[in-house]
Simulated scan of single mutants.
Amino acid sequence: MSEQTHLTAVEVALLSILSNNQFHSGDKLAEHFDVSRAAISKWIKQLNEKQIAIHSVKGKGYQLAQYIQLIDEHKLKQQLCELLTVDYQVVSDSTNDTVKQYFKNNQSNILAITEQQLAGRGRRGRQWVSPFAQNLYFTLGLELDLPISELSGLSLAVGLSLTETLNRLAIPAKLKWPNDIYIEGKKVAGILVELDGAFDSPCRVIIGVGININMQVGQHTQAIDQDWTSLSIFSGKIWSRTQLAQQLSEPLYQDIELFTQHGLKNKVELWQSYDHFYRRPIRLIMPNNEIAGVGRGIDESGALLLETANGIERFIGGEISVRGMVGQEK
């Protein structure tokens, strides 16, 4: 995959005009920017080289691909103003890092969201593929009145909240312990929770979320080393990323508040109803060994329950895999 690069100010301005996904003539664009048609053509070519698909049709002009839709910054801020301060950037290195900057200024209740991450990362430092204006990349920066010892189930609570919302939207999302979301056995979302500062109460938490929304198969997806999907591929339609950002973040904020009061109590059965690997043979991969067994959900601390030859065992670390197991997908 080609290296992701920052957009220039001119490219951002051009994309903001094209963001209505209508055709715009080269003459009109040249007049707007007070440049030649050749300059517009050059800018369009540069954007295409950055894997931002812009169609050129003779007699009509230029049109941003329908699956590329910019977030309506004003609308999102208006929708969430009573809950969160929204930091919107066209391109950022990492929304988690953006939240860390707010924490340095003693600000919390932040939602950092971007059209593209240049250094997005998942669990264990893995790269998170972040094509421009196709998916959701956002981070919540919250100060929770909990000690670090009571945060072990937070990433599970986040995944459960997002999964419930997706199911309300008729997306049959499932959970993979501890922090992935699947659709029909393919990964559609990931969660990365980090802590900032002192580990005493209150704790500053950084909750990064990446969800594949309108991403299509292309050059940028060749770097993904596992089965994946997007809401668009599954449903066959293009989704409003602005609307989804609001629909996901509002209940997520509320569910995190409930987590600070009750933890995962009364959530174990709900988790199991969405657990993609519940009652299925799996392997738990850890740094020095692997353990085979049958998935039995989680306990109230968020630990994985695995039925092995020794009975029901609980684990707080590792990664679920079904590679090589009969009748299972990757």
Rank of each mutant, 00 (worst) to 15 (best):
Q107P: 15
I285R: 09
L83P: 04
R126M: 07
K42A: 10
Q134V: 06
H262F: 13
N96K: 08
F234Y: 13
A245W: 03
Y102H: 14
V322W: 05
A65S: 09
L264C: 10
A38D: 11
M1K: 04
C81S: 12
W128I: 09
Q222I: 07
V268E: 14
H32E: 15
K75V: 12
L7T: 06
Y88D: 06
A198H: 04
E3F: 12
S321E: 07
Q46S: 12
L306K: 06
M215C: 10
P287Q: 08
N167E: 15
I256N: 00
R296P: 00
G120T: 01
Q134K: 11
Q4F: 14
T139E: 00
H32I: 14
G311M: 02
Q46P: 07
W239V: 07
A119F: 01
L111D: 09
Q4L: 15
V35K: 14
S149A: 14
C81I: 10
S108L: 03
Y102Q: 02
I110M: 00
L156A: 08
S2G: 12
V188I: 10
D27P: 03
I238N: 03
G263H: 03
E300H: 08
M286P: 09
E269M: 10
V10K: 08
L244I: 06
Q116T: 07
T242C: 03
G190S: 07
Y278D: 06
N214P: 11
I148D: 13
D225Q: 10
A53D: 05
Q89A: 07
L140D: 02
E257G: 02
A309G: 12
V86W: 04
Y182S: 06
L140C: 12
K186H: 13
E184S: 07
S56H: 13
N310W: 05
A65H: 00
F23V: 05
I285H: 03
Q107W: 05
A170R: 09
I171P: 10
L284Q: 01
A38Q: 14
D299E: 13
Q246H: 13
S301M: 09
R121S: 14
V10R: 12
G26D: 04
R168F: 13
S108T: 11
N109C: 12
F103G: 09
M286R: 15
D93M: 12
W228E: 12
R296C: 04
R123L: 06
K187Q: 07
V35F: 04
I233W: 00
A112R: 00
Q63R: 15
K174Q: 14
E269S: 15
N179I: 10
M215G: 08
S25W: 04
L258I: 07
Q22T: 11
L264E: 10
R204E: 04
Q216H: 11
I206L: 00
I238E: 01
S301L: 11
I68H: 04
P287R: 06
A133F: 00
A292L: 06
G190D: 02
E194V: 02
A157F: 00
G208A: 08
I68V: 15
P202E: 08
K237P: 01
